[in-house]
């Protein structure tokens, strides 16, 4: 270590349901901390809070991990794409994306899934304007969005129908 006397900063937060403590630096972004520790589903896209590839959920809200300093996450509840679904057991939206052929290069998809997760958890009805509000910070440079939108709409329509049935 260059400076033996300086205390190594650490940050403690809940990561996908588990309390974890990570060594970090004051200028490290949450995205870099996550990827450095093996959580590579969260992508580095633009690094300037525009593209949404790094979207994670903090205390129930979608945020850009590329803009958040890791130290800001102290005591927060952080969820990443690793907690959303697995290869064997994809989430409902992930399965719809697969079935709908909505994934091309796939780089934007983890962020899309996290924004959609925040939407589904925070709201009980899903009018198009509201869905656009939640998804307006995720860019896709391959698909033109139609198939991603259709896949999400199918999930949301089912949830709305299920809620009506009670």
């Amino acid at each position: 270590m260059m400076n033996q006397t300086a205390p190594q900063p650490a940050v403690t937060f809940t990561l996908n349901g588990e309390t974890r403590t990570f060594a970090t630096r004051p200028d490290e972004k949450l995205l870099d901390l996550l990827r450095r520790n093996g959580y590579r589903g969260t992508k580095f896209g633009c690094g300037q809070g525009t593209c949404g590839a790094c979207t994670v959920i903090m205390d129930g809200r979608a945020i850009y991990a590329c803009l958040l300093y890791s130290m800001q996450a102290e005591g927060r509840d952080i969820r990443t794409i690793e907690g959303a679904g697995t290869l064997d057991k994809p989430s409902e939206f992930q399965q719809e994306l697969i079935d709908g052929g909505a994934v091309q290069c796939g780089y934007c998809i983890p962020g899309m899934v996290m924004s959609a997760t925040a939407l589904m958890e925070a709201e009980s009805t899903y009018p198009d304007e509201l869905v656009k509000e939640y998804m307006d910070g995720n860019l896709c440079r391959c698909t033109g969005y139609e198939k991603i939108w259709d896949a999400l709409r199918r999930v949301l329509d089912r949830r709305e129908a299920a809620a009506k049935k009670g």
Binding site: G49, I63, E133
Partner: peptide
Amino acid sequence: RRIATHQIRNV
């Protein structure tokens, strides 16, 4: 509603 994106507005 018209500033930046959802993820920025949350922070």
